[in-house]
Simulated assay, not measured.
Amino acid sequence: MNSSPTHRQINSPEDIKQRSGLEVPPLLLPDPGKLFAERALRLRQLAAGHAMRDYLMLMAVVCEAQHARLQQYPEVTLPDAAQAAAAGESGEPLLAAEHWPRAAQWRTELRALLQQVLDKLPADSPARVGVQAVMALPDAALEQQADRLLAGITLGLDLAAAPLVAAGLQLYFTHLVAATGAARPQAFQVPPDATRCPCCASLATASITRVGGQQDGQRYLHCALCSAQWHMNRIQCTHCLATQGIHYQSLQALADDKPSAQRAAVEAETCDGCHHYLKTLHVARDLHVEPLADDLATLTLDLLVSEAGFERHGVNLLLLFGDGDAQAGGD
Rank of each mutant, 00 (worst) to 15 (best):
C197H: 01
A293D: 02
A204Q: 14
Q236N: 01
S227Y: 13
F310H: 15
R196V: 13
A265G: 01
Q252I: 09
L304E: 11
I246V: 14
I208E: 14
A268D: 10
R196S: 02
R219V: 13
V211E: 15
R285G: 07
L319N: 15
P191T: 09
I246D: 05
A261G: 04
M232H: 01
R219T: 13
A297C: 05
L296G: 05
R196Y: 02
L320Y: 15
Q214T: 14
A253H: 15
R210H: 09
R210F: 06
R196I: 03
R234K: 14
F321W: 15
E307V: 13
A224V: 10
C200S: 06
A284D: 10
S202I: 07
L304S: 06
S207Q: 09
A194F: 04
L303M: 14
C197F: 05
G309W: 08
V305A: 06
V289C: 00
N316W: 11
L296M: 14
T209S: 11
A224F: 11
T298L: 10
D216K: 05
L317H: 13
A265Q: 01
Q189D: 07
I246A: 03
V305Q: 08
L292G: 01
V283T: 09
D294M: 03
D302T: 09
C197D: 05
E290Y: 01
H276R: 01
P191G: 05
H276V: 00
G212A: 13
H276F: 03
A187C: 02
Q218M: 15
T298E: 07
L292Y: 00
I208S: 11
A265I: 01
A265Y: 00
W230Q: 10
E307S: 10
E267P: 00
D302V: 10
R234S: 11
A204H: 12
E307F: 08
H239V: 03
G213N: 12
T243L: 07
F310V: 09
Q189M: 04
D295R: 06
S202A: 14
Q229F: 02
C199G: 01
R312T: 10
A194I: 03
I235V: 15
S250Y: 11
G217N: 10
L320A: 11
S260A: 12
Q252V: 11
I208N: 08
L292P: 03
A206I: 07
F188D: 02
P291M: 06
D286R: 06
P191V: 08
G273V: 06
I246C: 05
D216N: 15
D295S: 03
Q189P: 00
V211D: 09
H247E: 13
Q229M: 15
D256K: 10
A261N: 05
A268P: 08
A204M: 12
G212M: 12
V289Y: 01
I208C: 11
T300K: 13
A206P: 07
